[in-house]
Amino acid sequence: MVAFPEARRPGGHVALVVAVAVCYFAAGRLGLLCKLTVDGAVVTPIWPPTGVAVAALLILGVRYWPGVTIGAYLIVLSLDTPVLYSLGYMVGNTLAPLVAVALLRRAGFRTDLRRLRDGLALVFFGAMGAMLISSTLGVVLLVATDRMPSHTFWTVWLAWWVGDAMGVLLVTPLLLLFSHAQGLRPTPRRWEAAALAVAAVCVVPPAVYSHLSLLFLVYPLIIWGALRFELVGSMLCALATSVLAAVAATDGAGAFGGLSRVEVMAKLQGFNGTMALTALLLSAVITEQRHTRRSVEKACEELVEVLEHLTAGEAPPPRPAPEDADPLLRPDRRDPL
């Protein structure tokens, strides 16, 4: 994990809180560039601040939640919103990431996303479960402040919920990945990475802006990225495609042309959701299998070395316990009894 020595210095906690707030606000302004009006309410197909908030609280700790609240306040301050709605929005968008982190930690979530169970936990607890709080509270306040009619509650609620969940599914994994040192190392497959980037540039825009509905052409790129570059390859492809699809949907172009706003939102969020789930879960399965294979190969090598020492009549050298082993099972652990 990336260390943050600033947190131990005087004023370091405040500096990191401000950094979280700035990142949250910047992500919110980017998300508002692609907004749609559904039944009189403005919603965003992807709301990146939710992903930033969940990742920040997982990486830094829940004690930095004021940064999320300040960032949410800055967003509502830049918009023309009533006081009641602004307060409720701040509460909902702070409480949802906190609940997401609590649920993930309860499930034994690991931020390196090397296990399928981590991917499933992020999907069901971090995205689909916790984001029910922010979407429900936000839409209830819209109705309470007469900013939308009550009969459109479920349509707007579904669009809001999926937008918040998409922010967690697309943004959080990448931020968690780059918080680890291995996420920042250059890949040895530079030429293949360049080929994947070129293929994405050549395939994604025509697939999104074509009137023939060619969005399915993106999935081979997602699979390629997951097989060869694991999480970073698949999620970068998914994020870039989702952003471009959101821009096309906002303009009513390509595969989203000739549709009503509700139909555009349903098609866009269905496409983004299935693509994000495919990228996240497929890469998690591949990463887990490779990690298991490496562990088995290392165990076999150590077993061969022990057998060689025993054959030569020497005592085998002590083996350090693996980093992720149970501390109670380490050889240097002494029974207090």
Rank of each mutant, 00 (worst) to 15 (best):
K35Y: 06
D332I: 02
A248T: 03
A195M: 00
V306C: 14
P317K: 15
R105Q: 12
P66D: 02
F25P: 03
G67Q: 07
G233M: 06
P220S: 03
T311I: 12
G258H: 10
L184N: 15
Q182L: 11
E263N: 07
D326T: 04
L120Q: 10
L281I: 00
T152Q: 09
S213Q: 09
P49S: 05
Y64Q: 09
A121N: 06
A200L: 11
A26E: 02
V247I: 13
S234K: 04
A226V: 08
P322E: 14
P186D: 10
P320Y: 04
A279L: 07
G28A: 10
D324Y: 08
V101S: 00
L137F: 03
M90A: 13
F178T: 11
L122T: 01
C202G: 14
E308W: 10
V208S: 01
A121W: 03
S78N: 10
G129I: 06
R290H: 08
L170N: 05
L236Q: 10
L98G: 00
K267G: 03
R293E: 15
T136G: 11
L141Q: 01
G126Y: 02
L36F: 06
G119Y: 02
L217F: 15
A248Q: 05
A325Y: 12
E263D: 13
P322T: 02
A245V: 00
Y64N: 05
M235V: 11
A72K: 11
V156R: 05
M235K: 04
V203C: 11
G67C: 08
L307N: 12
L174V: 08
H13T: 12
R106A: 11
A127T: 12
V18Q: 06
G126V: 01
H309E: 13
D326Y: 03
R293L: 04
